[in-house]
């Protein structure tokens, strides 16, 4: 159900563009107003969500420790997987965010007759995740050329590296190929692996279809329909100078691409995609294991009802005396 719903939701988004742009001629709406609204929703939404999380206290220091604690000088501590300093935490977080450290640990377990349970390293999800996120990032950086005039050197370098394996013209970007491959992989594993098929929700398929749709329309635009790049840049430069103009004659495929991107931006803050910001706040990763060495304060710590020693002694005084135990009151 999740798959079909998500698929048709994305199809519906595309239909909306055809109706709106080709049918009703709403170029300004689809070229300016919706992208602006989506962008604002994206920024405000993310800020709101992060602020919302930030407002909730971290009552306890609960790092998941993945290595030896810091105890004695003669025992080598695992300074990154079980950090006891701010630097250790920073490195742990950097590895987590930039290299998906925890996912890199992934192993597969297999139960055979006997019983015999064996484990094997399983890095496919890590590889797929890395490929997906990094190509997405590079593609995003390449798109920045639409917002600069002249185009900064760094973007041009990214482009030329990306197009290193030149196959005909226009240059085929490696990232485009890897990106679409990675999205397909992430989708297929949800469909093929029974565990994943069982846990996947519409909220898992929808972003995949949406992002896949953005990738496909981007590729179509670049390699097949040869859209009017000069016109598009006129539009995008208009956005950032707050003097939007909608040039005539931009291919409908561009509007589809833009609308899907707008949908992604607007959807982002209310979806699981917020893991992008959330990972930074995860208390099992971003806290140092200094629990016994430094006090961690819980802002809502409150006094609780306790069973005092005096009450205990009152209950058992005779037993205590008979056992030769000292008591406070005779």
């Amino acid at each position: 159900m999740g798959i079909l719903f998500s698929f048709f939701a994305v199809v519906a988004l595309i239909v909306v563009v055809f109706v709106g742009v080709q049918g009703a001629n709403l170029h300004y709406l689809f070229g300016v107003i919706i992208p602006f609204a989506a962008f604002i929703t994206f920024i405000v939404g993310i800020v709101y969500r992060v602020f919302r999380w930030g407002k909730v206290p971290v009552p306890f220091r609960i790092p998941t420790t993945g290595g030896q604690q810091t105890s004695f000088p003669w025992i080598k501590a695992s300074r990154i997987d079980n950090p006891s300093s701010a630097l250790g935490v920073a490195v742990r977080m950097a590895l987590e965010v930039l290299l998906f450290r925890s996912l890199f640990r992934n192993m597969r377990s297999e139960l055979r007759d006997g019983p015999k349970l064996s484990y094997a390293s399983s890095k496919w999800l890590w590889l797929g995740g890395i490929a997906f996120h990094y190509t997405f990032l590079i593609i995003l950086i390449r798109h920045m050329r639409l917002f600069f005039e002249p185009v900064p050197g760094i973007i041009k370098i990214a482009e030329s590296l990306d197009g290193f394996f030149q196959v005909g013209a226009p240059v085929v970007y490696v990232t485009d190929v890897v990106f679409l491959g990675a999205v397909t992989f992430l989708f297929l594993r949800r469909v093929v692996i029974p565990q994943l098929r069982y846990i996947s929700l519409a909220a898992d398929y929808f972003p995949l279809f949406l992002i896949g749709g953005i990738g496909v329309t981007g590729v179509l635009m670049r390699y097949f329909f040869k859209t009017d790049v000069v016109g598009i840049k006129e539009l995008t430069m208009g956005w950032i100078t707050f003097s939007p103009v909608v040039p005539q004659g931009i291919h409908i495929i561009f509007y589809v691409h833009l609308f899907l991107v707008s949908s992604l931006l607007a959807y982002f803050p209310m979806s699981k995609l917020m893991h992008m910001a959330g990972v930074f706040l995860s208390p099992t990763r971003n806290l140092a294991n200094t629990n016994r060495a430094e006090l961690h304060v819980n802002p809502w710590n409150y006094p609780v009802k306790v069973h005092t020693y005096e009450e205990y002694e009152d209950d058992y005084r005779e037993f205590m005396k008979s056992a030769g135990l000292p008591v406070e009151k005779e």
Binding site: W53, S109, I193, L196, K272
Partner: peptide, 22 residues
């Protein structure tokens, strides 16, 4: 969910990648 950041965050950000399953 207003007292434990861990709780709210963990309810919000799971992407169901399935790494934990086995």
């Amino acid at each position: 969910v207003d007292k434990y950041r861990s709780f709210r965050l963990f309810l919000d950000i799971c992407v169901r990648c399935g790494a934990c399953a086995d």
